[in-house]
Design a protein around this nucleic acid. Sequence first.
DNA 1: TTCCAGGAGAGAG
DNA 2: CTCTCTCATGGA
Length: 306
Amino acid sequence: MQIQDATDFSLKYTLESGQSFRWNRIDDAYYGVVEGRILKICQVGTTLRVESSTTEDKTTFVPFLRHYLDLDRDVPKLLAAVDNDAYMHRALEKLWGMRILNQELWETVASFILSQNNNISRIRGIIRRLSERFGEQLTFGGYVDYSFPSPEALGATTEAELLACGTGYRASYLREAAAAVVSGEFELTAVKEMSYPEAKRELMRRKGIGEKVADCICLFSLGHLAALPIDVWIKRIFETLYLRRRATYPEIREFAHGYFGDSVGYAQQYLFHYVHECQDWADAEHLSLIETSVTAAAENRKSVAN
DNA sequence: TTCCAGGAGAGAG
DNA sequence: CTCTCTCATGGA
C-alpha cells in the first residue's frame, strides 16, 4: 500500500519527536504498533510505503493512515502562521514536515500518565514491558511486538504487577484511570466529541492527569492544536528565548498563545524537538535570532489578526 | 554519587 | 493564587 502525495511530510521527525513512544527505526523503515496491528512505514521522497501485519481494507485503511499522520490538514499554511521570528523559522526549516499525530485516545491517556517526571527512553521501556505483559502478541514476518493493553487488561491488574513493569508511583494513577474507563465513569468516546476546554477539564478530573498531561492528550490524540503542553523544556525555552526572565506557567501560556495563536501546539512541537536535536540551541547566535525580531513579529501577528 | 526526566498531588502561606 | 515537598525509577 502506498501514499503518493505525502508532501511537506517527514516520517522521521514525526515519529521521533517524543509524541509517540511505540516506533522503532530499523534501517530506513519504521516499525510500530498502531491500534492492534504492526505497521511498517518507509518514506522515499513524497511516497510512503506502508505494510500491515493484518489484512487491511484499502478504502478505510488509507483514510485511517492519513488521519493518523495528520496528512489531511493544511500544515504548511498553519506553520506559516507561526513563522514569526528567525528562531522559529530555523526550527521550521530544520524539522520541516514534522506533523502532530492523531493517536488512539486510551493509549495516549495511559502513555502520558506514565510520562510525568520521567524521561522518554524510560517511558518507552515501561510501555514496552506493559504491552509484553498485558497486551496481545503481534507478528509481522520476523518482527514481534505487542498491542497496547486495553483498559480492561490494565484495570484488572494489581499495582504490584504494574510496579514490576517500572511504572513507579504512577501505578495507581494508571490502574485507576483504566478501571474508570471500564466502569463507564470515564467516557473516552464522549471526550472525543468535546471542545478543547471541555476535554481538558474532563481529562484533568483523573488522578495523575494535570494540566500538562491533559494538554499532551488534547494535542497528540484529539487534534486540538491550541493545546500547549508546558514541560520543563518548553518552560526553559520560553524563559530563555522569548521572555528572558523567570516566568510562571500562566505567564508562559499567555505569552505563547498571544504570540503563536491558535496553532501554538504545532509551534511548541517544533521548538521542543529543535532544542533536543541541537545542543547549542541557546548560544549567542541563536539568542540573537529572536532579539532582532520578537517585537516586530508580535506586532505583525496583531496586525494580521485585525 | 548525585542529578535529571514531555509533573502532579497535598499542604502551607 | 503561588510556592514547596514528595513521589519510583534508571540512565547519564
